[in-house]
C-alpha cells in the first residue's frame, strides 16, 4: 500500500511521467492514485524530488488483468 504525504507534494508531475500504469491523477491542487491499478512498482517514490510517496507493503503486484 502506498501512502501519499500530500503536505509535501508540489504537484510537479514527475511521478505521473514515470508511472507505467498511468494511475496517478494530478489536478491544479490535488494528487490521487488509483490503488486498484497501482502495482507497487515504486517508481514514483524514487523519482519524486520531494519524497511524497511512502510504500508500506513493498511487494510488487502483478499487473491487474484488464
Amino acid at each position: 500500500m502506498i501512502e501519499i504525504h500530500e503536505d509535501k507534494c508540489d504537484l510537479c508531475g514527475c511521478c505521473v511521467g514515470v508511472c507505467p500504469e498511468n494511475c496517478i491523477d494530478l489536478t491544479e491542487n490535488r494528487i490521487s492514485i488509483e490503488h486498484e491499478i497501482c502495482t507497487n512498482c515504486r517508481k514514483c517514490e524514487w523519482a519524486c524530488p520531494f519524497e511524497v510517496f511512502e510504500f508500506k507493503n513493498e511487494k510488487v503486484r502483478l499487473k491487474a488483468a484488464v
Partner: peptide
Amino acid sequence: DGVESRVGRWAGIDTTVSMHDMESAA
C-alpha cells in the same frame, strides 16, 4: 500537457518516461 502528459496515454500513445531518462528536479 508537459512532463505529466496523459493525453497521449489516454489515446493509446505510450509517453511514459524511463527512470533512466527522467531528471528529478528541485
